[in-house]
Nucleic acid binder design. Structure first.
Length: 591
RNA sequence: GAUCCCGUAGCUCAGCUGGAUAGAGCAUCAGCCUUCUAAGCUGAGGGCCAUUGGUUCGAAUCCAAUCGGGGUCACCA
């Protein structure tokens, strides 16, 4: 149980006994005491004054006395300042906490709860390489999956690959027209970049053709439709849907190139999936459900044969769910896939990591599920995240302002290498160890940078300033971990039980912070928010760093103090490693 | 036009289920390596929490309006 819960419980018991009426934890707040006041945790009394008809001081005294009387092992003293009842928690409580948990690498994690949840993330298109926005998505998805596991869920990671549609045909057409049979192998290019090159080529060519048509005084809108390369692309899409062998063959080949490239990137960044869905397999799903919905009267058919749902009573619009030619649209497929996931895996929750530009779409999906009365409607969660922008504005592939995923990872590793060589602390590492260290630090910096911000907020990535290994960064935390590991290599930890010892304020502060870890894991799960972990872990690292510079562990005042500090160091290292693991960030033993 | 999100230090972000004097990092300035890893530590400066009004004992936090920025409202995915 968390300390705040213990305090709440104790206060509820005392209040109910003192005033002969029921109280709950919601009647008052328990906060950590501000550093400028004496005490560890504070009960705010204002909200209780009316119900108890007491003045703050009187209430504080009655409550404080009663709580101490009932729990002498927990509370050592209290003071009242204005409406704030400040308790000092007994050293014995903190000491017991430390003794029981310092060497438990699972500290903070919660037991299995028997629930199964699927996290869908990444969702790439197979016409171009991954960029920085995809990295935010991948890191979020991975991290949320880890956070759910730590909270006792069984987690399945899934990926829906957008492998069909007009955008795929664009790179196919361009390759047919201009490729001269070249391949990733023949050019030495990574497959996804190779295909992406032709996607860009398409857009260049298309722009050129439209311009020429406009120059021959054809209106812009008309020119966009008439451009020969666009017409060819649309024909190809029809051929694809008709199953034309030649087109299918090209499609398989080019997608294969992209997958080879993606595999490399996923391996590099540490993303993986338990189940991969391909839109080419799922795009027809959902049509049966639409029929069921029609029978139920949830959907309606318009004169031209298209099928719609009227969401105006819910403040939204009418939404198309089936085209007049009977083919499915984006939402149709999602309705089907949601059903399939539920049936296939018996999941209790389905989390979709998708950008916030699809908030409306996901709202509609959930609403449709609700109206259809499916059992999983309430268990669909959209983890909506904001765009990653550059200081100059949005990233646009057409304008070449996209930060490529492979490039930025490489750049971070290069920076890690340069910095490591400059510091010269690992001169004895062999080349493989060095490469691994650069990867750990560079990727750690990137992951931490993208995960430390609240997912739902847009964020700015400045290529010049963002590659920073100082301050609120992954490498800072890794550094503190390595520093603790260095101490532990040089100092023996003996499993001795300590007599009551006085804590220094800095020692107690660290233990109090460490105690919050289980609550932070819970909160990160409730909010589906890895940044809660990132911020917490940084604060732990900072507290340790500050402690480290003020107090020697190896040369502590006494042998017992040394053991106490070693235990605190071990627990700090465990929490740092465990927390960073939930962000998908490895910790080096040395750096 | 409808609807949703955002606006906190020069910059990037915390804090938002209302509580004590609004916090970090970067950048700037001043100190600190003969002692456990200085990717570090200590300190200084830097704020009308977009604006106005409301609710409350108490508002950065809740409500409303306004102003600024962005998303969405496709028989695209």
């Amino acid at each position: 149980m968390f300390i705040t819960e213990l305090i709440q419980e104790a206060a509820v018991t005392s209040l109910s006994a003192l005033f002969q009426q029921p109280f709950t934890a919601k009647d008052f707040q328990v906060n950590q005491t501000k550093p400028e006041f004496e005490g560890d945790y504070t009960i705010v009394l204002f909200s209780l004054l009316k119900k108890t008809s007491r003045a703050p001081e009187a209430l504080g005294k009655e409550l404080g006395d009663d709580m101490i009387r009932r729990h002498p092992e927990l509370f050592s003293s209290y003071n009242i300042i204005k409406g704030f009842l400040n308790f000092s928690i007994s050293d014995q409580y903190w000491m017991t906490l430390l003794q029981h948990n310092y060497n438990d690498v699972c500290f903070g994690k919660h037991p299995m709860n028997g629930k199964k949840v699927m996290v869908e993330y990444s969702s790439p298109n197979t016409n171009k390489p991954l960029h920085l926005g995809h990295l935010r998505n991948n890191f979020l998805g991975w991290s949320v999956a880890e956070i759910l596991k730590a909270n006792g869920y069984e987690v399945l990671k899934s990926c829906i690959v957008n492998d069909r549609g007009i955008h795929i045909c664009k790179s196919m057409i361009a390759w047919q027209l201009f490729g001269n049979g070249e391949t990733p192998q023949s050019t030495g290019m990574k497959g996804d970049h190779f295909v992406g090159k032709y996607y860009v080529r398409f857009n260049d060519e298309y722009k050129q053709q439209v311009k020429e048509l406009v120059d021959h005084s054809i209106p812009q809108a008309e020119a966009e439709k008439q451009a020969p390369i666009m017409i060819a692309t649309q024909e190809m899409l029809q051929d694809w849907e008709a199953g034309n062998p030649e087109v299918m063959d090209l499609w398989r080949t080019m997608n294969g190139w992209v997958y080879e490239g993606f595999d490399i990137t996923y391996k590099t960044i540490g993303s993986d999936f338990d189940k991969t869905y391909y839109e080419s397999n799922t795009y027809l799903l959902g049509k049966d459900i639409v029929q069921t919905g029609l029978d139920k009267g949830v959907f309606f058919r318009k004169e031209d044969g298209s099928v719609w749902i009227d969401l105006t009573p819910d403040g939204l619009d009418e939404k198309l769910v089936l085209r007049k030619d009977g083919t499915s649209v984006y939402i149709t497929q999602d309705i089907g896939l949601a059903q399939q996931k539920y049936e296939e895996y018996k999941i209790d929750q389905s989390i979709y990591v998708i950008g916030d530009e699809q908030n409306y779409h996901m709202k509609v999906l959930k609403l449709i599920a609700k109206k259809m009365g499916v059992p999983y409607a309430d268990d669909i969660h959209h983890l909506s995240y904001g765009m990653v922008e550059l200081p100059t504005g949005k990233m646009k592939s057409r304008e070449g302002t996209v930060v490529d995923a492979d490039d930025i990872v490489q750049e971070m590793e290069n920076e890690a290498k340069a910095k490591t060589e400059e510091l010269g602390k690992v001169g004895d590492f062999d080349p493989a160890e060095l490469a691994s260290l650069y990867h750990t630090i560079g990727l750690g910096a990137l992951k931490f940078f993208l995960l430390r911000v609240d997912p739902k907020k847009r964020m700015v990535f400045n290529p010049e300033e963002s590659i920073d290994f100082h301050g609120f960064t992954g490498p800072f935390i890794q550094f503190n971990y390595a520093r603790i590991k260095s101490i532990l290599r040089k100092n023996e930890l003996e499993n001795v039980i300590h007599l009551p010892l006085d804590f220094l304020p800095a020692e107690k502060e660290l233990i109090i912070s460490l105690e919050k870890y289980p609550a932070v894991i819970r909160q990160a799960c409730d909010e589906l928010n890895p940044s809660a972990i990132a911020i917490y872990i940084f604060n732990i690292a900072k507290a340790f760093s500050s402690f480290y510079s003020g107090h020697s562990i190896a040369n502590a005042e006494s042998a017992e103090k040394k053991q106490l500090r070693l235990q605190i160091a071990v627990m700090t290292a465990n929490v740092l490693k465990s927390g960073m693991q939930m962000l998908g960030i490895d910790m080096p033993e040395r750096m």
